[in-house]
């Protein structure tokens, strides 16, 4: 049961992509970090691309990216 704590159980801190739930990962790797404008896929940094496709799989990402439906509720 992974009820109370989900330690990565990894000897080395800050590693451990294994076992990290995808939704939690996407919360962090999409549109976080220092956004510097790149030359390609501009829309990723600017979010609309991500937002467009959200309905396909996630309502997560961050509050800076309002999901296309109100409340983030189930479809």
């Amino acid at each position: 049961m992974d009820r109370d704590i989900v330690p990565w159980d990894n000897p080395e801190p800050l590693t451990g992509p294994i076992g990290v739930p995808l939704v939690d990962l996407l919360d962090r790797v999409l549109a976080t970090g220092v956004v510097v404008s790149g030359d390609l896929v501009i829309a990723i940094a600017d979010v609309p691309l991500v937002r467009l496709s959200l309905h396909a799989l996630l309502s997560s990402v961050s509050e800076r990216i309002p999901a296309p439906w109100a409340d983030g509720g189930p479809l």
Binding site: T15, T32, G33, I44
Partner: peptide, 22 residues
């Protein structure tokens, strides 16, 4: 995430968002 995490083992890092390209 794997690359970012590996880099972070050696010292502090600033991750960039997925797919920042030049």
């Amino acid at each position: 995430h794997h690359v970012v995490s590996a880099a972070a083992v050696a010292g502090p890092v600033v991750p960039l968002p997925l797919a920042t390209l030049y």
